[in-house]
Design a binder for these strands. Sequence first.
DNA 1: TCTGTGCGCTAAGTATACCAAGCATCTGCT
DNA 2: AGCAGATGCTTGGTATACTTAGCGCACAGA
Lengths: 123, 123
Amino acid sequence: MSDEEKEVASGAWRSLGEFIRGQRELANLSMRQLAEIAKISNPYLSQVERGLYKPSADVLKSIANALHISAESMYAQAGLLDDSETRDESHHGVEHAVKLDPRLSVDQKEAIIRIYRSFIGRE
Amino acid sequence: MSDEEKEVASGAWRSLGEFIRGQRELANLSMRQLAEIAKISNPYLSQVERGLYKPSADVLKSIANALHISAESMYAQAGLLDDSETRDESHHGVEHAVKLDPRLSVDQKEAIIRIYRSFIGRE
DNA sequence: TCTGTGCGCTAAGTATACCAAGCATCTGCT
DNA sequence: AGCAGATGCTTGGTATACTTAGCGCACAGA
């Protein structure tokens, strides 16, 4: 496999690797140093930085922590957050908030949503 | 391997599976339906919901989109955002969302909040 | 010179995320 | 009764994320 083909295969992930490498160099860390802090192997870090592999979410988080970067911007760079959940209306919706509340059981969620819908005259 | 050992092995991920199953049932979707929308196989979704596997970040994102919830809250549930950027509850809080809803009267808001509080055991 | 220690990278293996095919069960229909 | 279609789950395999061992090169001292 040629280098060009590798580049194509890695696709959108190449920029993530470049991003990590840039941040690592900015922090003046060698691969082995960063790898140790992030608890991954240094060859794997090498492969990630060159775009050969898509690191899993927890590895991403671990690298982000090691570089003192927010995991969120890491995911954004990785193209894992983009989808237009455009934090205006959707975050304030009652149904959305109810569904996300971990203290409520499924039955309770359904009950509240049913009442809510009856109030606003939908359904 | 016993069920208990599986549970231990899956660790913190069990709650993520339960969360996904809850959201799926709330949306009245079968496993096959959700799997098709999220472009994953239905056996795999079954395994994820039972906590046997840790889905990768892009699968998580895909599931989140299919369920119309933000990828961010998905990652939070997965314990992948937890460290410093502890998501602020104000965006998702049920009471906050209820109070902001212009379609509800004051009485209706009070009713819903009363029910909500009784469910979560806060007075 | 030679020796040691750092670097990034390769090779080869293991672990696990993920898929296609199919099974067992239930429910409804005739 | 029997079939049809849905549900969630199991099995067995492939793809890929990730590791351990080690190579080759650079730059230090002795």
